[in-house]
Every structure is written in C-alpha cells, then in structure tokens.
Design a binder for these strands. Structure first.
Lengths: 224, 224
DNA sequence: ATAACTATTTATAAGCG
DNA sequence: TCGCTTATAAATAGTTA
C-alpha cells in the first residue's frame, strides 16, 4: 500500500478518477454538513463530474432555490436575467404571432377589409370562393355518405320484412304452424317486430315499406 | 490543549464559531479545488454564514452562472421564482391559443375539414358564402371608387382642354393677341402649352388650370 | 481577523473481497 | 460498482502571539 504524498494533479486513469471523485465528493459533502451544523450556516454545493453528472448538496432546513434566490439578491451576478429576458422575448413574439393570426381570421370573416387594395381583395375573393367550394364539396360528400348509409339500412330492413312476410305466408298455408302455439300469436309477434319501425301500428298492408325514403328511415331512427 | 473528539454540534460560543467557520470554510474550498483539479469536475459552492454573510467558491475555468444554468437545465428542482412559473404558464397558454387560431385559419382555407360534422360544415359554408359576398361587395365598391376618381380626373381634364381651346379661339379673333408673337397656329401653341405643363412652367393664362397639378396632367395624357 | 503550533481526529489512496 | 481495511496525509480545535 504505497501511500506517498498525494499529488494534486489531474488523475489520468479513468477508473481511479471515478473512485476518487466519488470518495472526495462524499468527503466534501460531509464537511459541508458539519459546517452547517457547527456554525449554523447554509451551504449549497452544485457540481458536475467530468462526464457532466450532476451532484448537489444542500444544508438541511433550506432549499437550493432559497439559496440561489438569496445569492441572486446579494451578489452582483444577475443569474436568471438572461433566461428571464429570453422568455420575455418569446412571449412578445408569441403575442405578435397571435395578433397576426387573429387579423387573418377577421379578414376571412369579412372584417377589417379596409386595409386591402384591389389586388388583395381579388385574391382574397378567389381564396374564399375556392374554400367555399371545398366546404360545399365536403358537405355534399358527407351528405352522400349519410344517404348511402341509410339506403343500406333501408335495404336491410326491406329484406328483413320480406322474409318475415314470407314466413307468415308459410305458416298460414301450413296448419301445423298455427297449432303449435295458440293462434293469436301471429299478431303479437308481428306487432312486436313492427313496433320497432313505427310506434302505433300493429299491421302493415303489403309492401307498405318498399318505397320508404331516406327521410322516412331517419324518422324511424328518431322514433326508435 | 484539550483536543478531544470533535462533536458535530452547534458551537454556542460566537467567537469560536466564527473561527471554526472561517477555518472550515477554507478547508471546504480547498477540498473543492482539489476535486476540481484531480477529477476535472466543476464545483460551485454558495454559502451563507449564520450572520448571512455570503461566501462562494467556483472552479477555475467556469462561472457560477454557467453552473447554475446547467443546473437548471438538468435538475428537476424548480429554482426559479413565481414570476418564472407565471411566465411559463403564460407561454403555454399563448402557444395553445396559437394552435387553435392556426386550426381555425386552416379550416377557413378548406383544410382539416374531416373533423367537421354536417352541421358544422353547413354553418362554415354559410359563413364562407357571407364573407365571400362581403369581399366581393368591398371589391366592387373599391373598383367603383376608383372609377369615380378617374372620371373626375377625366372631367377636369376635359374642362381644362375646353377652356384652353376657348382661349385660343379668343386669341384668334383678337388680332392683338396674334401680333404679339409671331402668328403660330393653334396646333403648335396647343402643343407648346401641354409640354409646358409637364415641365412645370411658370405662368398660366387661365384660372381654370390652377387646380390641376403636374401629375394630374400626366394622368390625363395617359387616360386620353 | 490571521498565523503558527501541535495533539488529535479525519480523510482518503490503495488494496482486498 | 461497492464496502472494508489500513497506513499515511490532511484537517482542525485549541492555544499562543
């Protein structure tokens, strides 16, 4: 165990350096803590290793923020000023952008048009026209989709109804059907099914639903 | 020389405390400096004595500000004051508003319409139509104004021309006029007079011209 | 406050598990 | 990366000047 006089000189060996850093850091923090207790002082140590790892010590009963605020007050160094100013600048720019955006919106709502010259008015007019067309297209497309959907539903209910009627005809032809359960059953079954479609009817004359339009179906949905 | 085991406990004696504080502070700073050199680290120590005296250590080749900037970036600790927090909040809100405004603009340019349902599309369509009309109205009005202005200018020029010709006729009728200078014909005099206005000449033989400026005359020529 | 001295305590480099 | 050990370097309380 060679323990000659310690040279205060950069430790080249990485591993040894790491170990020494760790040990001496602890030693430093311990000393700081002792100082805190012995002399009722407040100490903040902030350190970065050569690999930029952060380590800090702060005296008990205080916070780093407190110390730094105090430091800022006492020392000449304006620690946060640069950041503060940068934020002010950011805020200013954001507000400016915001104003511009609002103006643009107003112009697209037909306000504040006085500042525009003819050419600008023309291009705005053109833009509005284009957008108007786009919106209308989109609207029609959306409506088309909706109609398509309702048509499908209509078809589905038509098929369902046809099957139902077909089945009823079969039962009517075959007496066995009627005898299985009591005979009043037809109406009640049919009535139950059809109430889905319209509130008050129990019977439909033949094919009554075949030509149902989209709006009818919408009504049907609302009633349901 | 009583040198028993050092108790890590607050030193009540003021003088002793001061001395210890001074000695240990130096020891701490020395350690910090050694750490800096040995391990290539950057250390910032900020401390306040019980009497609120500030002492600080900073590694060579760096500044306290640098360390604190880095600290703020790396640490989660909220070292800034309430003002900073308020500014952060303001910034956040501004950015949010900004986003919303941009979305609105995009929608009014016909983009991002997928999120809209039929009703929204309808009201947007209506809005676009209204604005479109407004813009067109404004355009026509602006065009109207422009036409009106040019008409006025044209009228003024015509009056001017009429007066000029009238005067020339008078001169032609009255021999005294013609004999003053050599008898130039109407055309050449007229040509001279018109050139004379473009070149900013001095005397006007007729009051009718007093209201016309050089630029007006140039415009008149362009319009004719 | 600061410096020097000195008996002690403390810190820690290097080695080991 | 730790924790432990140990010989030695360094720090420091108390004192004096």
């Amino acid at each position: 165990m060679a323990r000659g006089k310690i040279q205060i000189k950069r430790i080249e060996n990485q591993t040894t350096g790491q170990v020494t850093y760790s040990k001496r850091r602890n030693g430093l923090f311990k000393k700081a803590h002792e100082l805190t207790v012995l002399c009722d002082a407040r100490v903040s140590i902030i350190m970065f290793s050569s690999s930029n790892k952060l380590h800090e010590f702060i005296s008990p009963n205080t916070t780093t923020k407190e110390i730094l605020d105090l430091y800022q007050t006492v020392s000449d160094v304006d620690v946060w000023n640069a950041h503060y100013e940068r934020m002010q600048e950011t805020k200013r720019k954001l507000l400016e952008t915001n104003r511009n955006l609002r103006t643009q919106i107003k112009q697209r709502l037909g306000e504040c048009l006085d500042e525009f010259d003819i050419q600008e008015l023309c291009s705005l007019e053109e833009e509005m026209e284009n957008t108007f067309k786009l919106v209308r297209e989109r609207k029609f497309k959306s409506l088309g989709n909706q109609i398509e959907t309702t048509k499908k539903k209509t078809r589905a209910s038509k098929t369902y109804k046809k099957n139902l009627i077909h089945e009823l005809e079969l039962r009517a032809e075959d007496p066995h059907y009627g005898l299985v359960d009591n005979g009043g059953d037809y109406d009640s079954v049919l009535g139950y099914q059809l109430r889905f479609h319209q509130n008050h009817h129990h019977h439909y004359p033949n094919h009554a639903l075949h030509e149902a339009s989209a709006s009818d179906i919408i009504t049907f949905h609302l009633l349901e």
